[in-house]
Simulated assay, not measured.
Amino acid sequence: MRLVVRTFSELCLTVGTLIVLFVVYVLYWTGVQADIAGAAQIDTLQREWARTPVAASPGPARVRPPYAPGKGIAVMYVPRLGKDWEWPVLQGTEPGTLKKGLGHYAGTARLGETGNFAVAGHRRTHGDPFKDFPRLREGDAVVLTDGTTWFTYRIDRAPYRTVPTDVGVIDPVPRESGFDGPGRYLTLTTCEPEWGSSHRLVVWAHLDATRPVADGRPQALDS
């Protein structure tokens, strides 16, 4: 009987240790990995942009290559989510891509162009980029740069709750967005509830202003 009790106790300790290690991995280590990967992606983008001279005045439109799967395409800033909130946007929404930053839905518009530039991000784990997503409000700025231009979008409504199968939220003109025709839009999506994935939270924004990188940071980042 003593042997049975001791074996059961040791088994409980082992299971308890594994649970603690898993929690540490989910809550802490995936965040460390995401921070390192995200910083590396931003550094890579900035190095690429530094090799491409930025014109101080308007000139011929630069031909931009297609977005490459898994590669960085922009950097996003959301002042409402923190003064130091900064994440790379990569092409694609595959699990491996979302471990390194935010993901641009393939098939949606390119940044700043007519249509819907749609982006997904984790609510929790892998850096918790959209942990405070419910705080977003109408009028909040979402700023992105592709190395040549700053794009300032303005959110049009508080987060909208829907189900994962509602793929219409990333349509060129999403039905529930309130937009009444084609335009240059931004959609952000994340999981709901905070520690689950039964639903999605969505915000829509419209392009409010653009500014050449050569002219300095947009006011939305310094206000």
Rank of each mutant, 00 (worst) to 15 (best):
R2P: 13
R2I: 14
L3R: 15
V5N: 13
T7C: 15
L11C: 13
C12P: 08
G16I: 07
L18E: 13
I19W: 05
V23L: 13
V24I: 05
Y28W: 15
Y28Q: 11
T30S: 07
T30K: 00
G31D: 13
V32R: 07
G38A: 07
D43F: 13
T44L: 13
L45V: 02
Q46W: 06
A55W: 10
A55E: 14
P58L: 09
P65V: 02
A68F: 13
P69Y: 04
G70L: 01
K71D: 15
I73M: 06
M76G: 03
M76Q: 02
V78Y: 06
G82D: 08
K83R: 14
K83M: 10
K99M: 08
H104Q: 06
Y105C: 02
Y105G: 05
A106M: 12
T108G: 06
R110P: 07
G112L: 06
T114Y: 15
G115T: 14
N116F: 01
G121C: 03
R124G: 11
R124I: 14
P129D: 05
F130E: 09
D132M: 06
L136Y: 07
G139C: 13
G139L: 11
D140A: 09
D140K: 00
V142C: 01
T148L: 13
I155T: 05
D156G: 14
R157N: 12
R157S: 11
A158H: 10
P159R: 11
G168I: 03
G168S: 02
V169C: 07
V173P: 02
D180Y: 03
P182Y: 11
Y185S: 03
C191P: 00
P193D: 10
E194N: 08
D208L: 04
D208Y: 03
T210I: 03
A214W: 00
D215R: 10
A220K: 02
D222V: 03
D222M: 02
